[in-house]
Design a protein around this nucleic acid. Sequence first.
DNA 1: AGCTCGCGATTGTCCGTACAAACGCACAAG
DNA 2: CTTGTGCGTTTGTACGGACAATCGCGAGCT
Lengths: 237, 237
Amino acid sequence: MPLYQRLLDLLRSQIESGRYSVGDQLPTEHAMRTSFGVSRSTVRNALRALTDEGLIRPTPGVGTVVIRSRPPVQPSLLRGFTEDFARRGVPTQARVISAQIVDPPSQVRDRLELLPEEQVLHLVRLRLVSGAPLALMDNFVPASLGIGPEEDFTGPLYELIERNHKYYITYGRDAIGAATVRPEAASVLELPIGSPVLTIKRTAFIGYDRPIEYVEAIVRPDHYEYNVTLLRGKDAS
Amino acid sequence: MPLYQRLLDLLRSQIESGRYSVGDQLPTEHAMRTSFGVSRSTVRNALRALTDEGLIRPTPGVGTVVIRSRPPVQPSLLRGFTEDFARRGVPTQARVISAQIVDPPSQVRDRLELLPEEQVLHLVRLRLVSGAPLALMDNFVPASLGIGPEEDFTGPLYELIERNHKYYITYGRDAIGAATVRPEAASVLELPIGSPVLTIKRTAFIGYDRPIEYVEAIVRPDHYEYNVTLLRGKDAS
DNA sequence: AGCTCGCGATTGTCCGTACAAACGCACAAG
DNA sequence: CTTGTGCGTTTGTACGGACAATCGCGAGCT
């Protein structure tokens, strides 16, 4: 672990624990430099991170004071299914049911803003958590991306897109609804006919507004809920 | 003006103007160091700022690529039901079914972090869009806020809290699921028994982490879907 | 007493160097 | 054909030094 990060963790825990409380002055950079036996740039590296987190405010000629004891709440980020569960320490499996290049349904064509004759990779996967089926996912990715049906789709799809194809996902729009499970999906998800399911439709974008992926997921609501943290802005209304 | 800031402005304008477009690789730090005649730390200072702004992504062993040409889209903000619809130009009505001070259920007590004997204002409202019932909402607000059962609850509840009581909501957490509608709710929502419904549970906070409101909503999925825009961060996985 | 000047202290900027870690690629080995 | 080994490139981390900009405060002058 890098030096500056250990110093960062130490300082952050001291601030959170109240060893330094709001309004207090931190030791000077030079004091830390000598007491920790590191160079000043290392100290500054740690302090810059704390500044970015909004915990401290350095002022030239004065010193560095603590302005918050905890980081401000972060809104939820766009995460793939695999990432979302891995973050909570729950391992997931994916079973690829089909992966083929097809002509997209019109609704997919609209969402991905495809050209008239453009084809897509259609990926159907069953997601499992501890062996039990949880979600049935239909992914649509433009075939022009160059991702073929033969790749390994059991891991995080976003990483596959980002690492292999130099496209970086910037944001996504989710639409969440509820419906009665379709019979075909019911059998795969091991649900009784007529059960309610959570439906998640997501469009992911690269750059400023270019859609790169469209997903429709059907999720068992008994073992999953969609969680999101939202900030309240001044212009919310 | 500091050197690194001039370099920063130059790079930013080149990225915004398309001189370097999304996916392009920036010159290496060493190349900038020589071409601009500054030290590497100055270059890195500028690059770090661009990284913080989300415009570039440096990767060890590879280089620095442009991932955005403009500042990112804004993620969704926390909005109340009335605000959410008003924003899209759809007027809504609210019918107050009951409003009383009660002892909260244990689950509400946990979410609002209430003291053992603390009471809450329990508000049950039916939300209508163009005369048709859309959602049944149970709001819980600590009685200590001073909002009585006799106030006007047909408008935006957040405005009521914020304007009259000087509390500003900072963020909220939503948990969205699907379920089969309960019989009592079915009749109010004019749904057949056994219909699927969308359930939204929200906790809203003031300050760092003080919960101020808890809502459970049961929504007809045939005329509503929960929409949210999420950014993709660098530490999403 | 009140004001000004200058000094020390503190953070900001900038330079140079060195090594580590991660990655892509060519090339050799099996 | 596959594997892995090594090498060069690029960013990350860390060191040390120097000067600038800013501020608080006391010494000294009016």
